[in-house]
């Protein structure tokens, strides 16, 4: 059925019962990633702690299992990071999927490595990281008309 292991139980469980989904009101920064090709959308809210590190991340994701699981893992891994560190984490992950180059990608994210064989689905996994970067860099969150 899933010969190359893209849909590991961990991914399906995360998609089904996300831990970090929730309301974004009151967030220090908010960002959004959309994929116009498929209609997937991830909204992210970030709360910084007293030292400027990422204290809490919440997401509202609409999309496939890959998109939902990736958003939830992003929210988990970003916590405790410097803002720049979280951005670099996302960029390294994106580079891994796009080029295969592992430039210090967090091992937890290797569950998505089979996406290298599904080029059309890479954006599903990187969407949440784009939204996080938008939330951290202050790029205005797009308000979706149908949301």
């Amino acid at each position: 059925m899933d010969q190359d292991g893209l849909y590991q139980q961990q991914v399906i469980e995360r998609a089904r019962t996300p831990v970090h989904a929730g309301p974004l009101e009151g967030a220090t920064g908010r960002g959004e990633g959309t994929n116009p090709m498929c209609g997937d959308r991830v909204r992210v809210g970030v709360w910084l702690d007293g030292e400027g590190r990422i204290g809490t991340v919440r997401h509202q994701a609409r999309g496939c299992a890959i998109c939902l699981a990736s958003a939830d893992m992003m929210a988990e891994l970003a916590v405790g990071q410097e803002q720049s560190g979280a951005v670099m984490m996302g960029r390294a992950f994106t580079a891994l999927l796009q080029t295969g180059q592992d430039d210090g990608v967090r091992p937890e994210l290797m569950v998505f490595a089979p996406l290298r064989q599904h080029r059309s689905r890479i954006r599903c996994a990187t969407l949440a990281w784009s939204a996080l970067e938008a939330a951290l860099t202050g790029a205005p969150a797009e308000d979706s008309k149908d949301g």
């Binding site: 059925m1 299992a65 890959i66 599904h118 599903c124």
Partner: peptide, 11 residues
């Protein structure tokens, strides 16, 4: 999700 359906059908 339809995309997951399509990917698994493709496999």
């Amino acid at each position: 999700h339809p995309h997951d359906i399509a990917t698994l059908l493709d496999r």
